[in-house]
């Protein structure tokens, strides 16, 4: 049984808050609802960015998600463009 959009949002936020490392790949959120398609999870995670609850943590080559409060420094990893 797939989660509702609000339930999925809550599950993603919980994961972002409690995961051992602050930066998460989109794939790390797939487990929040094994029944949802990856693109649905991606869309909900991106909605959370629009709402200001998550931030993109982009290195140039790779983009991850994070809770703003868990990111210490604006410098981070970067990569090939």
């Amino acid at each position: 049984m797939a989660l509702s959009k609000d339930e999925l949002k809550a599950a993603i936020l919980k994961k972002a808050e409690t995961a051992p490392k602050p930066q998460l790949y989109i794939k790390d959120f797939y487990a929040c609802d094994p029944d949802a398609k990856p693109r649905e999870i991606k869309n909900v995670a991106n909605d959370l960015v629009k709402e200001g609850k998550l931030m993109f943590w982009s290195s140039g080559s790779t983009t991850m998600y994070a809770m703003k409060s868990r990111i210490k420094d604006e410098e981070g990893t970067s990569g090939v463009n």
Partner: peptide
């Protein structure tokens, strides 16, 4: 040039690459 850095415009996760 330093290694990257997280910059962007709000709501976008691409289009800008940080450089210091």
């Amino acid at each position: 040039w330093k290694h990257g850095g997280i910059v962007g415009v709000f709501g976008y996760g691409g289009g800008i690459v940080g450089r210091y």
